[in-house]
């Protein structure tokens, strides 16, 4: 068969379906927009199909109207403030503990040996199962809610920060010692800065768990807060309000995620991919 054209070797792959393929910025953006649009269109379509005399699934428009209403009446701001304050305080405490204990575990074999078995066991107790206990111990005001947020996130924070601190390359630490650094200097000026971007990632990932615990806490006992408001709305079958509040949760999540990503690339340009 001397007159057939030579067949091409290999197989060409479209970047869209190549494993570990790389997309250009525009395609990425378009795909992202398409994903969100699909979700919104699906929601809207389902709402219109299901629309009957009682609303179980509000349309996007109804949800936004409910959101406006919540904002105008001032309920939204009070609830948002209460929830943000709880998550803010509780998660800050959890992160502080996570960084201190995690860095200790990741840098000191003795800390690791003594803490790992404790945390390894305790973290399998679902934090939400402690809610009744906390209510019993701490009453029904703010403290049991904060305690739940702390307990529900601190073990993840500690163990994940420990992993981050462990990943500081040994040559880096050894080199520091041979340059005259003491242990405290190595901790402060080598292990902490090297771990910093990883710690921000841990904070970003586990923040979702903090919101989860907030909801658990507010569902049980609260007179203000986003999750409390959702339960309230459910009692009056105000599904549009419930959706509006769920939307608020989503927006807070996206905003905090973007903020922490920005913080990471601003404070640690060296760790940018």
């Amino acid at each position: 068969m001397s007159d057939t054209a030579p067949t091409a070797r290999g197989r060409r792959q479209s970047p869209l379906f190549q494993l570990r393929g790389e997309l250009d910025g525009r395609t990425r953006l378009m795909l992202g927009v398409a994903g969100v649009a699909t979700l919104l269109i699906g929601w809207e379509a389902a709402a219109r199909v299901l629309a009957g005399d009682s609303i179980l699934l509000p349309t996007i428009g109804q949800t936004l109207t409910a959101l406006q209403e919540l904002a105008r009446s001032g309920e939204l701001w009070g609830d948002l403030g209460a929830s943000l304050r709880r998550v803010g305080i509780g998660y800050a405490v959890s992160l502080a503990l996570g960084v201190v204990l995690g860095v200790a575990m990741g840098s000191l074999a003795s800390a690791e040996a003594s803490l790992e078995p404790v945390f390894g066991m305790v973290r399998y107790i679902p934090a939400s199962a402690l809610t009744p206990l906390f209510l019993l111990w701490l009453g029904i005001d703010e403290s049991p809610k904060l305690a739940l947020i702390v307990v529900g996130t601190v073990f993840y924070n500690v163990l994940m920060v420990a992993d981050v601190a462990r990943s500081v390359p040994t040559p880096l630490i050894n080199a520091s010692y041979t340059l005259g650094a003491g242990r405290l200097t190595v901790l402060r000026r080598v292990i902490l800065p090297h771990s910093w971007p990883g710690i921000i990632d841990v904070a970003r990932i586990n923040l979702a768990a903090a919101w989860l615990m907030l909801v658990v806490a507010e569902l049980l006992a609260a007179d203000q807060g986003l999750a409390f408001r959702i339960v309230r709305a459910q009692r009056f079958r105000q599904v549009d309000r419930m959706f509006a509040l769920l939307l608020v949760f989503g927006l807070i999540g996206v905003a905090s995620d973007l903020a922490l990503r920005a913080l990471k690339s601003w404070t640690s340009p060296w760790a940018r991919a």
Partner: peptide
């Protein structure tokens, strides 16, 4: 008896402070 700046060391890789 321990490391010190009187004995400078250079390793094969990954020993520069990346930040």
């Amino acid at each position: 008896i321990g490391p010190g700046p009187d004995r400078g060391m250079v390793f094969q890789a990954y020993s520069l402070f990346p930040w």
